[in-house]
């Protein structure tokens, strides 16, 4: 059965203006991005947009029929709210199509001052039930919820029946393990907060330390997140993807999750069937070539599904070739 575009929007990441143009050219329906500060959850050095860059990028996207979604999806600590307010004002002035928010205070500010702008509820708000989502819809006029990556397809279908807004789900990219917006692991280790500073395992605190026995330790702050033998490829020290020692696991094991990527290419049709309106590709920190290949491949696949054709998923699976991939919680509860 052919589906219209309103039921399968492709939402793509951009960490730079060049990546944004690339994503638009590769067929993104909308692009999400953020400013160069704590107001978004990918506050990484060398990433994100100045106000001028955002202005130019919005013009480029709009001229080609694409939308720009501004991520203001961190939690302002008391005393710093003005930074988020200014970012919202600027976004409105620069004509972004929607704001992606997590904090109730930020959402309330935008609803009050820019009632004509769409509010999308960020995955950082961790709204995982119809009751939670309805709270945001009914009191803050949220138009779309980005669901946490912890729900199965039957659960998504059930939620869709009970909420008055659109659903966006992640389909590809980093596979987050912790409930988003509820993780202080980085702050505990480095003093920079994921919620308040938009930082996760900051590069400035990372150290790759060769040990006397020939192994390589990957460290974050004062802690060893993993240790790799000469035959292993050292991964980036993200706390929830490290190996640790537990009482029954003296050899060290992935206590939370192995370093895998999420790839839901196989489930595209099922997700649409469950009522998902928009598919999100993770990776604002990724290169232009990555954005180009991932967006193009999913563009084709989504168009196939829209036209009622069986999508050729070989290209999508090839994107994670050589790396471990998972369908996470989406396919089975056993993941939990």
């Amino acid at each position: 059965m052919p589906l219209d575009s309103a039921t399968s929007e492709l939402v793509c990441p951009a960490g730079t203006p060049a990546a944004l143009r690339t994503a638009v050219d590769a067929g993104a329906d909308s692009i999400y991005c953020g400013f160069q500060n704590e107001t978004n959850a990918r506050n990484f050095p060398g990433l994100n947009f100045t106000p001028d860059q955002l202005a130019g990028s919005v013009a480029y996207a709009h001229s080609r029929g694409a939308k720009v979604l501004l991520a203001l999806n961190t939690y302002p600590p008391a005393g710093k709210f003005a930074l988020w307010r200014e970012a919202a004002d600027l976004g409105a002035k620069l004509n972004v199509d929607a704001f992606i928010v997590a904090d109730i205070g930020v959402a309330a500010y935008i609803k009050k001052n820019y009632p004509d702008r769409r509010l999308h509820l960020s995955v950082q708000a961790a709204a995982a039930s119809p009751e939670a989502i309805r709270y945001y819809c009914e009191t803050l006029a949220v138009k779309r919820v980005v669901l946490p990556r912890i729900l199965t397809i039957p659960e998504i279908r059930q939620i869709k029946r009970e909420i008055p807004c659109e659903i966006e789900t992640f389909i590809f990219g980093n596979h987050g393990l912790m409930v988003e917006g509820r993780c202080s692991l980085t702050n505990y280790t480095t003093g920079l907060s994921t919620n308040m500073d938009g930082v996760c395992s900051p590069a400035a605190d990372v150290e790759y330390r060769p040990e006397a026995d020939g192994t390589l330790s990957t460290r974050l702050g004062a802690f060893t997140i993993d240790r790799f033998g000469p035959d292993e490829t050292a991964g980036y020290p993200t706390i929830c993807k490290g190996r640790y020692i537990a009482p029954g696991r003296p050899e060290g094991y992935y206590a939370f999750e192995e370093p895998v990527s999420l790839n839901l290419a196989r489930l595209l049709s099922d997700l649409i069937g469950a009522g998902v309106n928009a598919f999100k590709i993770e990776g604002r920190q990724r290169s232009r070539s990555y954005v180009r290949s991932v967006v193009s491949a999913f563009r084709t696949a989504v168009d196939d599904v829209r036209a009622g054709r069986e999508p050729d998923i070989a290209d999508l699976l090839a994107l994670t070739e050589g790396r471990k991939e998972t369908q996470g919680a989406f396919e089975t509860k056993k993941w939990r």
Binding site: P148, M178, R182, S184, L185, Y188, F256, W335, R336
Partner: peptide, 8 residues
């Protein structure tokens, strides 16, 4: 200190 929750 509570640091994180997960579905898993």
């Amino acid at each position: 200190a509570p640091l994180a929750t997960s579905a898993r």
